[in-house]
Amino acid sequence: MSDRVIYLFLGLFGLAALVVPLLPVVLARFVAPKRPGQEKLKPYECGMEVEGDAWVQFRMQYYLFAILFVVFDVEALFLFPWAVIFRAAGIPGLIAIGAFVGILALGLIYAWQEGALEWE
């Protein structure tokens, strides 16, 4: 199969795969009982009275980890093409990629030093 046929296949698969979660949910709509109540529809907080809203701002720390993630995930993305041609690229390729990874590793060490990796 050529790559074009494969992507056509993946597209069809995606459409067909939607049936797997949708079918039982739609079926449940007919089969399952539906008895909503004021108390039942409140957010679950272990039976206590609901206090405040859930849609709030939250901690800055998640953002820091997300930034670090973006840095290293993009790095990994650049590593894959190099990995495929690794033998052909030889020592010069290794040095180039080593410098790239090394700079990012320094960044990681800096973040660690600054305490950005501590989860409080």
């Binding site: 039982p24 449940a28 399952a32 009982p33 539906k34 008895r35 909503p36 529809l41 409140k42 679950y44």
Partner: peptide, 11 residues
């Protein structure tokens, strides 16, 4: 699972 009520919170 199919015959359990599907509760969607009001908010």
């Amino acid at each position: 699972m199919l015959t359990k009520e599907d509760v969607v919170p009001a908010g």
